[in-house]
Write a protein that binds this DNA or RNA. Structure first.
Lengths: 239, 239
DNA sequence: CGGCCTATTGACGCTACTCAACATGAGTGG
DNA sequence: CCACTCATGTTGAGTAGCGTCAATAGGCCG
């Protein structure tokens, strides 16, 4: 068996990437994708716990997740930290640093994770040439802002149980967008991460998981979650 | 006394706008500003309570605030709503709709408010020609994302009193950026708006104002707030 | 002056946090 | 392979902070 392309090239080629419809290349022609490919930097995958970037470091790259998952964390003035989001394949991170010299947040791999590094300056240049790319870029930015608005709603208005339900529904739909099961998946983040993200205590999240299991909404086994009653979960998520 | 320019022109000219250093024109040459001016649309000011845009409406424009202030509100699935942010002169709003056909949020004037309307399609075209504009645009977007990250931290980690203190410190620094007093200002939003924004009950916010007044941190008279002890307030804001 | 809306204050109850003990699984070394 | 430790997660008891309900006060407008 022989390959037409060398494997490294295929791996970082937008054209052959299964995520292209979720990610920056969406809507680009083949030749435009090739231009985009020229700026994508290769790197060996991050191991679980490794930093993609850290608060205070010079900002150079945006990152698109190829596989794995990442948490983005904002340090607070008093030494605590807040998880701002979890990022999965096809999603773009580092956007809050675009206007600055250094990163404000840190990004940490939750499992073995491959990314496409996109040098921001080059990215701007290519956007200047390819209008459909800059359009898709703004579109991804905009939906990122939209996600964060939803999160503000979740933290501002919803009770603990609804927050967790909202979180699970959100994960479910992101898995299904990628063609994975929307009803059963593995959490790549710890209970501690989930509670931090949702503004709750660890114990509360733990109790909620057991309650939702007792109510036959979920079936939970450590990090494996199965959504037994999707409708009920959605109803709980609403408030 | 005579004017070199007609007043309407002066009003919508970025070059003569006192906010240009906070807003999109920052870093642009005079001729670039003129290009930007060509796309700014005029309109009579909004009165208090009027909608700049409403959830579900077709998305056409971004808005830069010239004077006054605006709240942006996200409706939730169950008929409630969450205030996502308050916008003041020099700030840009509508960003969460860029990738979509319609607005998700609504924007409501809190007082008599003048804005610059920026048709998004034209805006993209001009960004394509003027690199420094697209840079400044991304920079504004990025700091907007940064603000929302801070808000996630506030809602996720801080107790009621710290939330209110954080809110007031934030307002204070935004007033001072515009050359206004950082120690005494009028709130343009109601207590109800503040509590909604901060994820608290109206009564809690009311109690906190009186407590901070009793502790000689603030002096509050209805919507007029004076920060008596800025350091103490900052300390409370941290957690 | 009277009515209305916004804001304040009080009393009470519930949600979710804290502190603490315990369980379970993963990883390590003998 | 088993015993050990450590990290992670679960469960219980007690409580504080904040939400809810309700009554009252104060500014604003006709």
């Amino acid at each position: 068996m022989s390959y037409k392309f060398n494997i490294a090239t295929v791996e970082t080629s937008c054209k052959n990437c299964s995520l292209s419809e979720l990610c920056l290349p969406r809507g680009l022609t083949d030749s435009e994708m090739q231009s985009l490919d020229t700026l994508v930097e290769k790197r060996k995958p991050y191991k679980s716990g490794e930093y993609l970037f850290q608060s205070g470091q010079i900002f150079k790259n945006l990152y698109a997740i190829k596989s794995g998952s990442v948490k983005v964390v904002l340090p607070s003035e008093d030494g605590e930290q807040q998880i701002i989001g979890f990022f999965m394949p096809g999603e773009l991170l580092g956007l809050d640093a675009m206007g600055k010299k250094t990163h404000v947040c840190s990004a940490i791999a939750l499992e073995t994770t491959s990314v496409c590094s996109l040098p921001f300056d080059d990215m701007q240049d290519i956007c200047h040439d390819i209008k459909s790319l800059s359009k898709q870029f703004l579109s991804l930015i905009s939906s990122e802002i939209g996600n964060e608005h939803q999160m503000l709603l979740t933290l501002g208005k919803k009770k603990a149980e609804s927050r967790l339900a909202t979180f699970l529904i959100n994960l479910s739909s992101r898995f299904s967008r990628r063609g994975l099961s929307s009803n059963a998946f593995n959490l790549t983040m710890s209970r501690h991460d989930i509670s931090n993200y949702l503004g709750l205590a660890d114990e509360t999240v733990s109790r909620l998981f057991t309650r939702l299991q007792d109510d036959n909404v979920l079936s939970v086994n450590r990090r494996l979650v199965e959504i037994v009653d999707h409708e009920k979960l959605k109803a709980i998520a609403k408030l």
